[in-house]
Design a protein around this nucleic acid. Structure first.
Length: 447
RNA sequence: GGAGAGUUGGCUGAGUGGUCGAAAGCGUCGCACUCGAAAUGCGAAGUGCCGGCAACGGUACCGAGGGUUCGAAUCCCUCACUCUCCUCCA
């Protein structure tokens, strides 16, 4: 017990940043278009960095050139030594050995300098988020998001609708029992409530596999450093994750385990698109959100989610984002939950996203729309980190794939939405018609 | 948990400390033959980085990281992973 939770001491791989030299931004693009790179950063609310990056890159290349010249001479001399030995010219061989020895004494310092410079450049790049797509609205925060559409009409209540946190405990959503054993941000579901949550998950994954063409997957819930790095939970957001005693990370979303299925892979074009879905628990420390949504079931350390991941050719990723978002929308429509579709502005998007739609479900108890799904295209951003490529028909060279992810949907928040939208004056909750086949005869949650 | 065997290019799979970026086969591409295709024959072809307008040259890469050596795919160490057997377990 109590061993420090670092991977190294437990025999796991060293931190991914040390193992992977794959850049997350294409340095050549930055070199060629520094102004547009800085413009992209500005959209993210970041200071221009291209000058600094280009300087670091130039310094690195100067070091590399110097080192390569030394190595070239060493290799040349080594070959000559071999020849001299073969001819029995010992004096010549010894002279050459002395020359190589001189080169070698100078090399380590140069190589150290190169390593330092490379690490500096990579740290700089690894900390930078993906750049927004051209059609992403500019904005600093959620106020800059653009509403694209609304579906459904919020129900008219002939009584004052309550927040789920107020009436759901009577129906089996028990926070106090969970708190006894686990603390805040956990819930203990009982009876009909547990059944309803399970029904929601089953229903959603059935729809995504049967109708939207996603392949059902059951994935590990713990991953290593490299995987967390690949989908960009590392290195920047390590405080958002739970870590096991042997140094692995609990997934905060099955985006981590699904997307990393293609890490280090060279796919053939015929394999694409790959569409995967999984119903898994997700674990989040919620380190940065102390005090927010502390009441109710909206923001938990542990929740179920159906995730939708796509691996596609670059030219297909825009269309795939629309398709994926639609797959999520259909769940809300099937459950007859009113929602709106938001296009996130540059400042509100996640780290790895190029473009994101959020679906926000209507919560009458809160009198507000709340996020229930987030669908993003990451372009090649994650693929670069994972080194996930594909080979086109008849082509010899490999290209990075594009990756997309989205929730279809978050189960816990869907439960909340059903509770609040289907609540009745007597404190009961009707079951949406689409879920009845999954409810084992239960048609209503009753106190 | 214990013992052993492995990790080489798009894939399968050889590989002696220097002539190994690496045999061979498959697959890919080009050409020939063909009305066309198949079969056959001949030929081409790894990736990143650096320099160069380019031709091209240099450098690194044989799981990862160190080490030995004038020189490492090859020898040594550490780690990760895969497989087989034993043990244990839902």
């Amino acid at each position: 017990m109590g061993a420090p939770p670092t991977g190294r001491q437990h025999g796991l791989a060293p931190p991914a940043a040390q193992r992977h030299s794959a850049p997350m931004h294409d340095i050549r693009l930055i070199r060629d278009n520094p102004q547009s790179f800085d413009a992209g950063l500005a959209c993210r609310g970041l200071e221009p960095l291209s000058a600094q990056i280009i300087a670091a890159d130039a310094a690195l290349r100067a070091l590399q050139t110097d080192i390569q010249a030394s190595l070239a001479r060493r290799n040349e001399a080594s070959k000559l030594i071999g020849q001299a030995m073969a001819q029995g010219d010992k004096d010549k061989a010894e002279a050459l050995k002395a020359e190589v020895a001189d080169l070698k004494t100078a090399l380590p310092a140069k190589e150290d300098a190169e390593r330092v410079q490379l690490a500096a450049l990579q740290d700089m790049l690894a900390a930078l988020p993906n750049l927004p797509a051209a059609d992403v609205p500019k904005g600093d925060d959620e106020d800059g998001n653009v509403e694209i559409s609304r579906w459904g009409t919020p129900r008219r209540f002939d009584f004052a609708p309550q927040e789920h946190a107020d009436f759901a405990p009577a129906l089996g959503l028990d926070f106090e029992t969970a708190a006894k054993m686990s603390g805040a941000r956990f819930a203990f579901l009982k009876g009909q409530m547990a059944r309803l949550e399970r029904a929601i998950g089953q229903f959603m994954i059935d729809r995504q596999t049967a109708e939207a063409g996603y392949t059902e997957c059951a994935t590990p819930l713990m991953v290593r450093d490299e995987a967390a790095y690949g989908t960009t939970q590392l290195p920047k957001f390590r405080e958002d994750l739970f870590q096991t005693t042997d140094g692995r990370w609990l997934i905060s979303t099955s985006e981590m385990s699904l997307t990393n299925a293609v890490r280090e892979e060279i796919l053939s074009e015929a394999d694409l698109p790959i569409r995967m879905t999984a119903l898994t628990p997700c674990f989040r420390s919620e380190a940065g959100s102390a005090g927010r949504d502390t009441r109710g079931y909206i923001r938990q350390h542990q929740f179920w989610k159906v995730e939708l991941v796509s691996i596609v050719r670059p030219e297909d990723s825009d269309a795939e984002l629309e398709r994926k978002t639609r797959s999520a929308e259909k769940i809300l429509e099937a459950l007859e939950l009113p929602y709106r579709k938001m296009l996130l502005c540059s400042g509100d998007m996640g780290f790895s996203a190029r473009k994101t739609y959020d679906l926000e479900v209507w919560l009458p108890g809160q009198n507000a729309y709340r996020e229930i799904s987030s669908c993003s295209t990451c372009g090649d951003f994650q693929a670069r980190r994972m080194n996930s490529r594909f080979r086109r028909e008849g082509s010899k060279s490999n290209e990075f794939v594009h990756t997309l992810n989205g929730s279809g949907l978050a189960v816990g928040r869907t439960l909340v939405a059903i509770l609040e939208n289907y609540q009745q004056a007597d404190g009961s909750v009707d079951i949406p018609a689409a879920l009845l086949p999954y409810m084992g005869g239960i048609t209503k949650l009753t106190p």
